[in-house]
Amino acid sequence: MKPMLQIHGLKKQYGTSTVALNGIDLEVHPNEFIAVIGPSGAGKSTLLRCINRLIDPTAGSIAFLDQEIVGANKKQLRQIRSQIGMIFQHYNLVDRLSVLENVLHGRLGQMSAFNGVFSRYSEADKLQAIALLQKLGLEEQVYKRADELSGGQKQRVGICRALAQKPELILADEPIASLDPNSSKVVMDSLYANCKEQGIACLVNLHQVDVAKRYATRIVGIKSGRVVFDGSPEELTERMTQHIYEGKEHQMFQNGSAIEQAV
């Protein structure tokens, strides 16, 4: 099967000395649910943000569905971004707007500037947004303001917003790092189920190895800006995990093992 996302020799350097990514090669195929693991500061977040160019890479190439992302102009970039959903650690919702409006924001990338500015969402978009919210168990929250929600609910709104884009790929940057074990499980279950069902490829940054092993179809281990492991969850040995987290072992299980207990 042809990869949907091809990353070659991706480098990101901050200033003259800080190297965040040091030559990343990665291919993502449709339907894959990939967990990117590694200690904090390994470059996981930078990698995800380079894919939709929230951060501009220093060198390398990224091809997404045969479109080159690194050299894309503003208009092309908007078009590419509209096909890539993103989920954030801090949810990144507009607190003072309703849950429904936040989900509808997912449609903006695919609307004209005029329709977008004046919130002229189509009837189909609105129905889809409400259907998504119902599906993720938020039907009671549709008209509430986003800042009235709990962390887990906010993150599910974040997932709805990403799904509203009808994306080909979802990038999730530490989606459960700010959540308690129960909410973490609900969020990971929702993300996984919806990606599988709609054939969306997903890259999830996680620092909890056991959560990664639970959900991922493939695991990518990153250490000091390089890919040091790329394989199935079964292939990820204890030794390899220790190598990835060398010196930062305490980060491996933070609230991850608690998910097991919450099951």
């Binding site: 939709n52 890539i84 993103m86 954030f88 919702l93 507009v94 607190d95 695919q110």
Partner: peptide, 27 residues
């Protein structure tokens, strides 16, 4: 944060002002 999210989904300049900046600027 909210502006970053709208950026990531491909919203344009005016859309970002309308949907992310203005609601938070109202108070």
């Amino acid at each position: 944060h909210a502006t970053e999210a709208l950026d990531a989904m491909g919203a344009g300049y005016l859309q970002k002002i309308k949907h992310a900046i203005i609601p938070q600027f109202v108070p």
